[in-house]
Structure formats: structure tokens, C-alpha cells
């Protein structure tokens, strides 16, 4: 569906995008996860033809120049920065962008109503956009790109600065889009979002893709062991515990034990079968944050 080959873009001394390659299949949701300045926005801008790459190519369904109007029309891009007319009403915004995509008449009205519905903005659709809250503006910003029902969506951090309610609404929308079979590229620096929404994730840092796979595989490869903390009614002898648990380093502390393992479920099942009684159990499996930490030595958000 969309393919990036060795994309490069420099700003002066900064390599904003440095030899990035990936391919996204039809119907897939692909995440670009990286901290501030990783090059996510730049990558999106290269994909949609807003920027010309210094090197490499983008191909959209086999066509290689996204700056051509015909090629771009299958794209829906939700920019990171709000790009709406605050002076116009929400409905006027949608109608205007719809018209720019060649919609008119009943089709336009229907699409506008659909998008208002999706964004949950139909109640106050005649108010000026400037009177809306930040989260509402974000939702409007998002649905402005859905009007022409594009098969390929590029979403650049659509949840930045949004309250949990708006965020959930945005997630639901994206999941709906996903279920409709649309191809989605989603950038974020929230690992929870990537974990929840994306079939595959590319970890991006300093313009480079460090690794790219499904979330589970990434965690398996780079996540490191899970951390388990268990409290027992009565602490069994350390030797018997060591028998069941696949871990080098077990800490004992009163009636608690703490350990790290790459096979948490098996260890716990064994313990359970041995007849010990748990008071509390805490399992902290590795996540994309750990993946990032292990790949870069830094946290996603500093």
C-alpha cells in the first residue's frame, strides 16, 4: 500500500530522517513510536509529499511521486498542529474541506454529518471553532481529513494535549477506521497508544528506525524480563521456591519475594501447583517503554 525506501531528510546538521525504510500493507495499522524530535512528523511530511526527501523514495500503490495531486488524493493526513479555520464554524470547516475534495450536494451533507458524528461535535456544529476546547479542536482537526473517506490515513500524534475522554473518542474512531479495513500510519510518543492500536510498530529515534515488528515480538526481543512481586501467607523455604522459578536473582523480604523472569506465567503456574498460598501478586510484564529503554538507554519521555 505505502512503502518508504531509504528516506533521508536533513535540516542543516540535523538528520531529521535518516535512512528510513518500511512497508505498510493494506488494512494494517502501523505505528511510529519515538520521543520528541525523533523525526515522526518529518517522516509523515515526506510520505504525503509536503517535503521532498533528500534521498530515497516513497511509493503509494506503486506510484512514486506523492506531490502529484492524483497520487495524494487517496491520502488523509491529520497534521500534528491544528490546521483548521478557527474563524469558521465547525460545519463550515468540514463543508469547506469536503468541497476541496470535490464533494458536493447530498454526498457532502452526508459526509459532513458522519464526520460530526464521529467527532462527537454534532451538538454545537454551528459554533465557531475558536470557541471549542482544545480536545474538541483536535477531534475536528482529525475528522477534517476523513471527509473524502481515504483508504490510507496518516495520523501525526492526534492525541497530543487531549483529555482522557477526547482521547478515548479518538481511539474509538481510529479503531472504527481500522475495522473498516483502512490502512493507518500512526505516530505517537505514548507507548500505551502504540500498544493498543498498532499491529506493527517501528521504534524511531534520531531519525533512525531501531527496530520494527509487532508489539509482542518487540517486547520479546527487547523488553527484558517481567517483574513479579508475590506475598505469601507463609513464606516457603527459599530452596523450594528456587526449584519452581526460572530466575537467577530472587529477593526475599519478610513474607514477600521479588524476581525477574522472561517466562512469568510458567513460573507462577509452577508456584501455584506447589501449594503455596498467595496473599498478593503483582506481575509487571515488559512493555514498549522497556523496549525503548533497552534499545536506546533512554526513556521515551524524559
Amino acid at each position: 500500500m505505502i512503502k518508504a525506501d531509504n528516506l533521508k531528510k536533513r535540516y542543516g546538521n540535523i538528520a531529521a530522517v535518516d535512512d528510513v525504510s518500511f512497508a505498510v500493507e493494506k488494512g494494517e495499522t502501523f505505528g511510529l513510536l519515538g520521543p520528541n524530535g525523533a523525526g515522526k512528523t518529518t517522516t509523515i511530511q515526506l510520505l504525503c509529499g509536503l517535503l521532498k526527501p533528500d534521498g530515497g523514495t516513497v511509493s503509494l500503490d506503486g506510484k512514486t511521486d506523492p506531490s502529484l495531486v492524483e497520487v495524494r488524493s487517496s491520502l488523509g493526513v491529520v497534521p500534528q498542529a491544528l490546521a483548521i479555520y478557527e474563524e469558521l464554524s465547525v460545519r463550515q470547516n468540514l463543508r469547506f474541506f469536503g468541497r476541496m475534495y470535490g464533494l458536493s450536494g447530498r454526498q457532502l451533507n452526508e459526509r459532513v454529518d458522519d464526520c460530526l458524528e464521529i467527532a462527537g461535535l454534532n451538538k454545537r456544529s454551528n459554533d465557531r471553532a475558536s470557541k471549542y476546547s482544545g480536545g474538541m479542536k483536535r477531534r475536528l482537526n482529525m475528522v477534517c481529513s476523513f471527509l473524502h473517506a481515504p483508504p490510507l490515513l496518516l495520523l501525526d500524534e492526534p492525541t497530543v494535549g487531549v483529555d482522557p475522554q477526547s482521547r478515548n473518542l479518538i481511539f474509538d474512531t481510529i479503531e472504527t477506521m481500522k475495522n473498516q479495513g483502512r490502512t493507518i500510519i500512526y505516530t505517537t510518543h505514548y507507548m500505551e497508544e502504540a500498544q493498543r492500536l498498532c499491529d506493527r510498530v517501528a521504534i524511531l529515534d534520531h531519525g533512525k528506525i531501531l527496530d520494527m515488528d509487532s508489539v509482542d515480538n518487540l517486547i520479546k526481543k527487547h523488553g527484558g524480563p517481567s517483574r513479579i512481586e508475590a506475598e505469601f501467607e507463609k513464606l516457603p523455604s527459599p530452596d523450594s521456591i528456587k526449584q519452581y522459578i526460572d530466575s537467577e536473582n530472587i529477593q526475599f523480604e519478610e513474607s514477600k519475594i521479588r524476581f525477574e523472569t522472561s517466562r512469568p506465567m510458567e513460573s507462577l503456574a509452577m508456584l501455584n501447583r506447589s501449594g503455596v498460598r498467595f496473599n498478593t501478586l503483582k506481575v509487571q510484564t515488559a512493555n514498549l517503554e522497556d523496549v525503548f529503554l533497552n534499545l536506546t538507554g533512554r526513556r521515551l519521555r524524559d
Binding site: 509536503l50 479555520y85 476541496m100
Partner: peptide, 14 residues
Amino acid sequence: TDGTFDRLRIGPLG
């Protein structure tokens, strides 16, 4: 500066 120009450019407008 508001980004609407880019949004229009991404849309099917020259």
C-alpha cells in the same frame, strides 16, 4: 503558520 495552507496542499489542490 496555522497549517491550513499545508492541509490544502496535501488535499488535491495545487
